[in-house]
Design a protein around this nucleic acid. Sequence first.
RNA 1: CGGGGUGUAGCGUAGCCCGGUUAUCGCGCCUCGUUUGGGACGAGGAGGUCGCAAGUUCGAAUCUUGCCACCCCGACCA
Length: 491
Amino acid sequence: MSSKGIVKRSEDFSKWYNELVLKAELAEHSDVRGCMIIKPYGYAIWEKIKDQLDVMFKKTGHQNAYFPLLIPKSYLSKEAAHVEGFAKECAVVTHYRLKNSEDGSGVVVDPEAKLEEELIIRPTSETIIWNTYKKWIQSYRDLPILVNQWANVVRWEMRTRLFLRTSEFLWQEGHTAHATKLEAIEETEQMLDVYAKFVEDFMAVPVIKGVKSENERFAGAEETYCIEALMQDGKALQAGTSHFLGQNFAKAFDVTFADKEGKKNHVWATSWGVSTRLMGALIMTHSDDKGLVLPPKLSPIQIVIVPIYKNQDQLNIISDYAFKLKKELSELNISVKFDNDDNKKPGWKFAEYEMKGIPLRVTVGPRDMENKTVELARRDDLTKFSVPQEGLPKLLLETLDKIQEELFSKASSFLNEHTNQVDSIDQMNQILNTKGGFVEAFWNGDSKSEQKIKDLTKATIRCIPLENSEKGNCVLTGESSSKKVIFARAY
RNA sequence: CGGGGUGUAGCGUAGCCCGGUUAUCGCGCCUCGUUUGGGACGAGGAGGUCGCAAGUUCGAAUCUUGCCACCCCGACCA
């Protein structure tokens, strides 16, 4: 199906990433520019991500709902900053019918079927949701509204990359409405914590929590909280955002509620989202030159059993054992594949499951059956060792946990080693041009300085970390500043 | 939108500069047999609007013009 191997990370990281996505059968390009087909294996990983996040959202009191894909154009113009941020990348529906072309060569848009008001394919759902919340909210008793939706959105990006930035992508967007500012801010922070916890505990990707500078803030938000991850090539990737929207959308859509005293107030809002971009973060954090490396908690298949045999009798004996092991592991909630496909040789299977990132491989051959052992191979560090069949399920369970932990600690070490403090632009450039990574520096808080630094270094402020008490001098102007921020070149 | 590149079988490609009979090779696919502890081997077989359109020519995958699509780098980007 696919030829051997992929280009090395050290040769061409970008190419490595693309080849990996294709060869691990996560996704492929569609015939529409910037759109991707998520293949079953890639989608299985996304489903794991989705299912776990969904549990976490529900535990924090949220419910799922679904709002329409198409939004009246007029909605988008109601919040000024919001339209400014999204207008340039909206796909627009102008007609509702096709007809056969006169020359019979295909179909054409029927000019008679022009829509009175054009429809926008949602780039995000704030506008349609706040238009709806207006109808749902009259009293403080109607609050809070804690709703999430799993959906697809379309943003007509100039340049796209599989999972990292596609014209259409899958995501969840939470949209909540609150009676007080404090409650909305608490919600925003809570969801940021949910994201950070998920990304660290399940994806094994360490993140830095912070808020965005004004320049990088979500269009229409008063404050954008984010988690930032660091990829193996030293570039940053925004992994999730949680926005405190203040009363901007409530005012734009005239959403008010009567408080206990009967006084009318505008509602306070939040929105928060993560997307299939998380797949990109997952891939670029752990994978290596042999292919994908998946953390056990998100791997659709956690253990693969590969039999080695010379004849049907041997296969029968091994199969009996493999099915028994598979059953025992299933009882421990471990997902197992026994690959007894006779058309592929073991070596082919080894390489294939390495490409797919299966965390653990159990190899069983006649020799093993005789010695009552199996061979265990870890995907993350590529070690192999022989272990007794006695007590194997428990050992496998422990090893999966260990892999999960070690992936996280390895990624954390990488992040720490690639976080450097600087106090001059020269130093910043020097770091960014060599090892890359996060650069901590003080900043005077001015958007113009931020832009200037970007022009000089191609680095943007990824975030202003939440815990932050030191003082220093602005890396650009030398002014005294209490804002220690994280710069990086980013995806 | 600027710069670069690509388009030939399911996938990856040679051929193109310098036009010439039946379009190259590898992987994959089908059949049979032998194999199976790190991407097996042999024999046989199937599979092609050479991105699209027009032009030049006795003759076009190859030359000319136009168009389309995608990829990469940049600008842009929650």
